[in-house]
Amino acid sequence: MTDTGNKPVSIALTNCSKTFPDGTRALEPLDLAIHAGETVVFLGPSGCGKTTTLRIIAGLEEPDAGGKVLFDGVDVTHLPIEQRNVGMVFQSYALFPNMTVAGNIGYGLKIRKVPDAQIKARVSEMLAMMQITRLADRRIDQLSGGQRQRVALARAIAVRPRALLLDEPLTALDAKLRDTLRLEIDSLLRSLGITAIYVTHDQAEAMALGDRIVVMEHGRVAQIGKPREIYQRPATRFVAEFIGTMNRLTGSVSNGTFTCKAGGIAWPEAPSSATEILFRPEDIRVVESGEATGLKGTVAAAFFLGDRTRLFVDVGEAQPLVIESTARRDFSHGDRVGLAIDPRGLLVL
């Protein structure tokens, strides 16, 4: 069994802000509802308040006066972390160097005065689940980064917490291992059905793991939504540019056409006030020769990636457009190409 033993908890923050003693405002007043059993990812650049929010939920920080943290509707604002029954995975893992792997995993149960036999059983179960049974008697300084990560996860889950909080758990690992462990964490969270909050600055991690993503900027929530919504309908320029690649054209609208330096785009629903449009690389393509087109540009760089070619096309803007082309065609620097944009992918922010 990999159940957590406890019903997943719903978490609500109301009016939670955080000002540090030196006067720094880490978090503007925030309201947030996290459903029981869902995985929410806090995403943003460093200093955006995502870790502070996690620490307020964990009970490692208290919000400024007036803020409230509710677990299943019960006010836990002033309850310290040790009484909240949350599992936490730290960026540095925070494994105890004075204990073995098994000792680390069993510590939470020992504190809860669980009988030794039950601790042993639960620890073996955790070791098996994380596929680290052979490491049970190792000391922490005898483990690699990926192994430490697994021990930290096992330790947090062993106590059957009401919620699992993960603070940049993969940041300290190299790229290849990160991909493997991301997959493992994803299936772990799905199988546990636990309420999980995952903090990261890596948008790919956020997209892969989150049921919902909370994008944060300067201590504020920029947008909350499903990964697809965040990607396709970003609420602000910040969100649009932080997640994925965004192309930009400047110009003006008249008679259902957006006109820029490189030409015109037919866009019947164009808001008349638009002076700048944004779109994703997958919403623009290079047209076949002979096809009618309103936009033209010059290839500034082309990178053949095997399954596709990444093109940087100069259209007279400050930044070249990024285009992913799957055409079986050899692009080279200086080629004049016609471009077509799917108006459904156009955004005005």
Partner: peptide, 17 residues
């Protein structure tokens, strides 16, 4: 030499006062 603060937070998250 050790990250005492995080170690203690880790222990606290597991229920240790």
């Amino acid at each position: 030499a050790i990250d005492l603060k995080t170690l203690e937070e880790g222990a606290a998250s597991l229920g240790a006062g």
